[in-house]
Design a protein around this nucleic acid. Structure first.
Lengths: 186, 186
DNA sequence: ATTATGATTGACTAATCAGTCACAAAGGTA
DNA sequence: TACCTTTGTGACTGATTAGTCAATCATAAT
């Protein structure tokens, strides 16, 4: 088993449960079943580990969403799949998703290369821009719509995970909420 | 000047800039211009300080919103003032607002007394319930609508603070976004 | 002037931290 | 076998941590 992967998994688990500085590097190594010094062979510093982990997770999410998006389909369908697959990924990977949110509201977000962040947003943004041009979406700045959509996903995620809904009720809520969102956007 | 207040202000500033565990209690005392040990006379532990600060800030926000809400006005107007005054408070107190968000995505949120959290949500929730009953809002669970509204405010806050909009453009964006939100809710 | 009180101090401690380093194990090549 | 490179180890270090505590201070009551 790849030790770098073991370390990233251990770090993710501990960061979400105890926070960044609340998690000692020695504890991460221990959780990964790896020697103390090995961590610093794969990551120059603890901060590097945090940033690496964040980018790694965001790539996973982006890949999952991209895999599910049919770029031939009509705009509404394409946007819907992007949103829903993001959400289903979040529900299937709650720890990963919580970590992303943790980084977003922490000082670490400023330390991450902006070009990498932009590249990850791009596919969503171009789709929205296409939607605006085709008058499927309201005539408003694309990045405003993008931010609102993103936070709607955060909100829906929070709602679903805070309740204990059955799979069926869950699916129902997601559908209704997407319809609400579409009322807002179109 | 009240030393407890000095400590809370210093802690807020440092927590937002360096994270919770990234901020040493000694640094907080130093920033507050107070001796090391004094901090532990006002707060039993560092965790206590974090939780105290969070509740303190949330009370400030709740008071501000309540002060601005006209409970005689019609539902749409009342809800609108609640949302807009939350947002304006956030824009006027960015550090406070960032701290709230930081706590929401951290393990600390689990350590805060649920009954206090519920009491703070209550005035918003009852207003929404009234709106649903009067068929001004869509016939959906009140707490779902509440979560979506909250996250819309987060999203709009993020959008506005990430751009450098003029006061006028800012106000315009807020108005448009509220109209969007209302399209979604009603 | 003396005593009492509670707030404030900062030196102190035991524990913990991120990061280093000298060495050992593993694996490939010949 | 012998030799070299890569990878992994864990004891170690100097710095920093949360929290303690005996001592000091300002104020006021007697």
């Amino acid at each position: 088993m790849d030790k770098k992967e073991l370390l990233l998994n251990a770090a993710l688990k501990l960061f979400v449960n105890h926070g960044f500085h609340g998690t000692a590097t020695s504890k991460i190594a221990q959780e990964a079943g790896v020697a103390n010094g090995t961590l610093f062979q794969y990551f120059k510093t603890k901060d590097d580990l945090v940033i690496d982990l964040y980018i790694h997770i965001k790539e996973d999410l982006a890949e999952y969403v991209s895999k599910n998006t049919d770029h031939q389909a009509d705009i509404k369908e394409a946007i819907k799949t992007q949103i829903l697959s993001s959400l289903y990924w979040a529900l299937d990977n709650p720890t990963h998703f919580q970590f992303i949110q943790q980084v977003h509201t922490s000082p670490y977000i400023g330390k991450i290369d902006q070009t990498i962040l932009n590249k990850q947003v791009e596919p969503h943004l171009t789709l929205i821009q296409k939607g605006i041009k085709q008058k499927v979406l309201k005539q408003l700045p694309a990045d405003l719509l993008y931010t609102l959509i993103t936070h709607q996903v955060f909100g829906l995620y929070q709602f679903i995970t805070s309740k204990n809904l059955s799979k069926k009720k869950q699916h129902e809520t997601i559908q209704t909420t997407f319809d609400l969102l579409w009322d807002m956007l179109s």
